[in-house]
Design a protein around this nucleic acid. Structure first.
Length: 420
DNA sequence: TCTGGGGTCCTAGGACCC
DNA sequence: TCTGGGGTCCTAGGACCC
């Protein structure tokens, strides 16, 4: 049996832990640049806020209902997440951290009649130790545990716990679950299946294999088999090696000149280099992209990308910056109001395994020592204590976050003060 | 003035090889 | 009636997840 533990409205719940005044107020959390709604408390969902709503369109609604609005605070959410995960690791020997707010637990070996009590204990403990409310779904496959979790969240009578243990439990659960709420069935597949008269998880699980395999694909078939109770998605205890990484951000304002776009790109490439070195990886391929707003009515859409192999695998920031800015010069066209750019690094390989060119006589010792020193300084003294001048100093293109709370748990200077 | 950021996997089609 | 059979690699596009 597997459990799927999912934090309720995670980002909104994190904000509430440090601000009891909003415990019963609707809460929404915005994406980077305060652009879109990406988390909502139950009260905010009831008011009609949707995932992905552009904030400028719902600002009025928020004001009318006294909604507490926050910029996202990833330092806080990341730290709260690791507290939740550490708590979960006390309950089961095998835990897969599936996302910032979810984990699968392997419950093999637990007596079946104790599972409901265990789930209740997990909820109580995580709530008490971290302040975060969670829901627990239990089932014989990961997809069924996910399904159980959906029902635990939806049915107020469930008290945050749902158990699929018997064949009868399974059929009951799948009959209640809309096809679009199945893990692995997204927007497109859901509407395709609905148009074929398949509205519930149960109906889907009963379709012939051949039909699912040809209309969807093997992933769709795997989902159906899991819904029938046969596990085919194993627990992943250590994350598989990363295949690529992206750093991209929308600018805080539209940019028309080359220089600020280049500064932003250099800053993103710097972050990408840090990620590579943190994971002890080298990149062999780079892609740089740039585009104006796809929503603009004032000018045509212009988006372009340049991808190329690097002369040798590297994680050296200076080298990455050189290649990236050369690519940007090819992509940049004057006359557009640019909204966003980014860099993708791919064909990653472990540092030390980088294939050298036969005629490559570089001394990469110097680069390695420089990067190590740079990372050490920035780790100890704070991000961007030392940085490449190409990323600019004023950085007035930076995304804004006007309603961000403090880093309550990761910075001594930002601890919560309580007056009594 | 205004719309996020980060990933993985599969399939089809075209090019190439014998 | 009747243009084989078996591969690899790459890319673009489209699903999906959080």
């Amino acid at each position: 049996m597997y459990a799927l533990v999912d934090c309720n409205n995670f980002y909104a719940s994190c904000e509430r832990v440090f601000n009891p005044a909003i415990l019963h107020r609707p809460v929404i959390v915005l994406s980077n640049n305060d652009g879109c709604v990406i988390a909502r408390s139950n009260e905010a969902k009831a008011l009609g806020f949707k995932m992905g709503d552009p904030f400028f369109k719902v600002r009025g609604l928020a004001a009318r209902h006294g909604v507490a609005v926050f910029s996202s605070n990833y330092a806080l959410y990341g730290d709260m997440s690791s507290r939740v995960m550490q708590t979960l690791e006390r309950f089961a020997p095998e835990v897969e951290i599936y996302s910032i707010d979810e984990a699968f637990l392997n419950l093999a070996g637990f007596a079946e009649d104790r599972l409901a009590a265990l789930a209740a204990d997990i909820r109580r403990t995580v709530r008490q130790w971290t302040g975060i409310p969670v829901s627990v779904g239990i089932g014989p496959t990961k997809t069924l545990a996910k399904a159980a979790n959906q029902l635990a969240k939806k049915d107020p009578a469930a008290a945050g716990v749902w158990l699929i243990a018997t064949e009868r439990d399974r059929r009951d659960a799948l009959a209640r679950l809309a096809i679009g709420d199945v893990w692995g069935i997204g927007h497109r597949w859901a509407s395709f299946l609905e148009s074929n008269g398949i509205a519930t998880a149960l109906a889907f699980s009963r379709q012939p294999d051949r039909w699912i395999r040809t209309r969807l694909n093997v992933i769709g078939l795997r989902t159906a088999v899991e819904l029938r109770g046969t596990p085919c998605i194993p627990l992943e205890l250590s994350p598989p090696p990363k295949k690529g990484l992206v750093v991209s951000r929308a600018f805080g304002r539209k940019l028309t000149a080359y220089e600020p776009v280049k500064e932003a790109l250099v800053a993103y490439v710097t972050r990408a280099g840090e990620k590579l070195r943190r994971d002890r990886l080298l990149a062999r391929h780079m892609q740089v992209f740039l585009h104006n707003s796809p929503f603009s009515t004032a000018e045509p859409y212009y988006g372009n990308a340049s991808g190329f192999h690097l002369p040798h695998p590297t994680s050296d920031t200076a080298e990455l910056i050189g290649h990236a800015t050369a690519a940007l010069r090819r992509l940049f066209r004057p006359g557009f109001h640019y909204a966003k750019c980014g860099v993708m690094l791919a064909e990653l390989c472990p540092a030390g395994a980088g294939q050298r060119d036969l005629f490559d006589t570089r001394d990469d010792n110097r680069s390695r020592r420089l990067m190590t020193a740079l990372d050490a300084i920035n780790r100890r003294m704070g991000r961007d204590t030392v940085f490449y001048a190409g990323s600019g100093i004023r950085r007035d293109w930076k995304a804004f976050a006007n309603m961000k709370t403090r880093h309550f748990t990761t910075d001594w200077r930002q601890l919560l003060r309580v007056s009594a």
